[in-house]
Amino acid sequence: MTDVVLDHITKTYEKGSVVAVDDVSFSVEKGELFGLIGPDGAGKSSIFRMLTTLLKPDSGFATVNGSDTVKDYRDIRKKVGYMPGRFSLYQDLTVEENLTFFATVFNTTIHENYDLIKDIYVQLEPFKDRRAGKLSGGMKQKLALCCALIHRPTVLFLDEPTTGVDAVSRKEFWEMLKRLKTHGITILVSTPYMDEATLCERIALIQGGKILSIDTPEEIIRRFPKPLYSVRCNEMSRLLKELRSFAEIESCNGFGDYHHITFHNEAEIEKLKDRLIKAGYSEVEIRIEEPTVEDCFIRLMKSLDNGE
């Protein structure tokens, strides 16, 4: 069963001069954990706002849970949970007051759906009399998630829930999402962090309002067209520039402590190590590497730029 459908959705701002979402189509199955992966300004928030009935598309149509996002917006508003990107709750209300307020607005009580938020709320409970403004980023995010879940939505939209949050809190947040999945809630989450892509069941890579690719993370990685190698040596920043100047190297990107490279011609790999040692590098290490989603994104983004 399909829970979310986008059919050729386009959205522009400022009288059409800024294209935020460019002819986007995809669908999300019921109970799926779907990730919208892309940088700032890629169109993620616009897509979420159209699906949550906050914006109308210029063209195309979308349905959530079978309801049209424009015509049946009231039905959708009853059924979905939404956590906007810059959502910061009511800073001057306490944790408990925030949650009670949102529960009441959604016509429910904390008690009624407690089983759903229990895992998350127990971590917040020691601070329930603390004002939301005095919580850390990670805690705020948990509270916001509780508020979005309090009415047991069928579809949950989380717009960049982990932006600006440290690696540990991010990890915890994704574990919470996985647990939520067991309740059968369809979850759409957007993130600029490519490393979070593999935590989703299916992802759409998005850039400049266009979908670059859409599939399971494994399939997207499998479709990476060439063998990828990682190179390491004693002088990484010089190596980066030098590799880019080599004719046989098709692409070269820094990835943490390695540089990821692909070749125009596979046979050249044999000669590379000698060439680098001759150029004065030491501790040269070259190995075949499994591409990451970020490798795929960079490759797709560049081919999109070159295609235009």
């Binding site: 906007p84 810059r86 009511y90 607005v105 959604f106």
Partner: peptide, 13 residues
């Protein structure tokens, strides 16, 4: 500014 309006709009209220 807080983004709470968005949440309130996307509610049955």
């Amino acid at each position: 500014e807080n983004g709470t309006m968005e949440v309130l709009l996307v509610s049955p209220f």
